[in-house]
Nucleic acid binder design. Structure first.
Lengths: 154, 154
DNA sequence: GGCTATAGTTCTAAAATAGAACTGTCAAAC
DNA sequence: GTTTGACAGTTCTATTTTAGAACTATAGCC
C-alpha cells in the first residue's frame, strides 16, 4: 500500500484515513476540540515527542484541517486553530468517544460528559439518516457504486 | 506514550483509538461492513501484507470486534464476522466516509452511494443530540469531567 | 503423485516512532 | 549586560513497526 497516494483512492474512507487515520492525529484532534491550540500545550498534555507533534501539525495544516495563526509578533509564535474542514471532523471524534463510552468503559464511569448548550441536557451522539431521521444501523444500509467508483474501476 | 495501556486511559477517545486507531484496522473494518469475511478476500482487496492482516484480525478478535467462526471443518477454515460491538462501530466508519465525501472529493463524484432500506432513499449520515434531536456542532457542546475522569485525576 | 485453494507463519529490509538533546528568539529578573 | 525561562521548533540515534517476499500446512481434485 502506498500511503502517500491513499488520499486519491476512489474510496472516501481511504481518503479520510489518509489524513486522520493514525493514533497521534486523532489524539491531537481531541485536544483541538478541547480548545488546545499551542505547541507546548499539545506536547505536555499528550506526551507526544516534539518531533512527531511538529510533523503532525504540519500535515493537518497542509490538509486544511488546522490553520497556523500568529498570536505574537516578536518573537513569532503561532497557534493552531480548527478550520471549518477541521470542525467538520466533530462527528468522527464524537462517534469514537461514544463507542468508547459504550464498549470500553470501566467501573469508574464515563471520563467526560457532554452537555448540549441548545437544549441544556447531557446527551449521547446518535447517527441518523438525513432523509427520514431514523437511527442508522449497518444492516439497513445498501451500498451502491457511485460515479467516482465507476469511473475509477472503468 | 505507552500504546499497550492506551485502552485504560481515562478517556474514551484514547480507548477507542487503542483498538481502531490505525490505518489498516480502519480499512479492514470498512471491508467488514462491505460483507468481506475471509482472510484471502481481505488480503486481495486491501493489498495488505499477510503478516499484518493476521495480526490485525487477531487483535480485533481479542477486543471482541470480530468473531472467528469456522465455516469448514476439514481443512479447518475460519471467517471473521462483526460482533455487536463491531457493528456498533458503524457510526465511526460512516462519519469518516461522510467527511471524505464532503472534503476529499474530486471531480469524479462520490465513490459510493448509501441507500437507507427503511426509507428507500440515498442519504448522508447526520449526527444529532440524543435528547433534542438537533444536529450537533462542536461549538454547541460543553464538556464536563465525568466520574471516570475525576477518579483518575484524584 | 502433482496441482490448486485457503489460511496462515517466518524472514530480511525499509520506514516510522521514541527519547533525548540541541537551536533560536525574545522578555523579564538579577 | 548577563542569566534565566518560556516557547516553538529541529536534529540525532536507538527501537519498533511495517513492507515484501518466500515458505508451511491441510485437504480436495485430477
Amino acid at each position: 500500500m502506498k500511503w502517500d497516494t491513499l488520499d486519491e483512492e476512489p474510496c472516501s474512507l481511504s481518503r479520510t484515513v489518509a489524513v486522520v487515520g493514525d493514533r497521534w492525529t486523532l489524539l491531537i484532534l481531541r485536544e483541538c476540540f478541547l480548545r488546545v491550540r499551542r505547541f507546548e500545550a499539545f506536547q505536555s498534555s499528550l506526551q507526544i515527542t516534539r518531533h512527531l507533534l511538529s510533523e503532525r501539525l504540519k500535515k493537518l495544516v497542509r490538509f486544511g484541517i488546522l490553520r497556523r495563526v500568529p498570536y505574537s509578533e516578536a518573537p513569532k509564535r503561532y497557534e493552531y486553530i480548527l478550520t471549518q474542514k477541521g470542525l467538520d471532523l466533530y462527528p468522527v471524534i464524537m462517534a469514537m468517544v461514544h463507542w468508547g463510552d459504550t464498549h470500553m468503559g470501566d467501573e469508574r464511569g464515563r471520563p467526560l460528559l457532554h452537555e448540549h448548550k441548545s437544549c441544556g441536557k447531557l446527551f449521547d451522539p446518535v447517527m441518523v439518516c438525513s432523509e427520514c431521521g431514523d437511527v442508522l444501523h449497518a444492516k439497513q444500509v445498501h451500498v451502491h457504486a457511485g460515479p467516482g467508483r465507476k469511473e475509477a474501476v472503468g
